[in-house]
């Protein structure tokens, strides 16, 4: 089996990307179980379409785009089946942070979960994943101007939700 086939290349890079894919999924789904299911579905889709990925281009942006579409499909499917779940805030996971850090994390996550889907995705890509505006816009399939305005609105809302404490961090 050749190491240079696109599927193998994607597979190898995905193995390293998994923690970040899980983090991105956690931000957009707001729920641990949904997040890992989303990663699984997206990885499966990516492996099936590995041929469509241009070697040398950024796999993370490509994956985030697949994940965003898979999540939107899932939301639509749930609405169609009239099984829309309320955000499960109790299910939020924040890793092994200290108690104090966890409080902050929870309040940030609670604030994030109140943002509209599109703003949360923009923030997840740029602020959490550190993508450039250009890569983030590409992942979401929107113009850069749309991305920056979602980002600005999301940030404004976050600052308001998190209170003045943001300036002190």
């Amino acid at each position: 089996m050749s190491r240079t086939s696109p599927v193998d290349e994607v597979r190898a890079q995905l193995a390293e990307l998994l923690p970040r894919l899980r983090r991105f999924a956690r931000v957009i789904t707001r729920n641990v179980a949904d997040a890992d299911d989303l990663v699984q579905v997206s990885v499966e889709k990516a492996l099936v379409r590995a041929e469509q990925w241009r070697p040398g281009s950024k796999l993370d942006s490509w994956m985030f785009g697949i994940m965003k579409n898979a999540w939107i499909d899932e939301i639509r499917a749930r609405r169609r089946r009239e099984r829309v779940h309320a955000p499960e805030e109790a299910g939020l996971g924040v890793g092994d942070a200290s108690a104090a850090a966890r409080d902050i994390a929870l309040s940030v996550q609670a604030a994030m979960s109140r943002l509209p889907e599109e703003q949360r995705m923009a923030i997840a890509l740029v602020l959490v994943e550190g993508l450039s505006y250009k890569d983030a816009a590409e992942s979401l399939g929107i113009p850069i101007g749309t991305l920056t305005s979602r980002l600005a609105r999301g940030r404004e809302a976050l600052q308001a939700l998190l209170g003045g404490k943001a300036g002190a961090a």
Partner: peptide, 16 residues
């Protein structure tokens, strides 16, 4: 500061 707080809120996932 907001960016840093948001990032650190989800950093725990990377260590899981």
């Amino acid at each position: 500061a907001v960016a840093a707080r948001v990032r650190s809120a989800y950093d725990g996932v990377l260590g899981e």
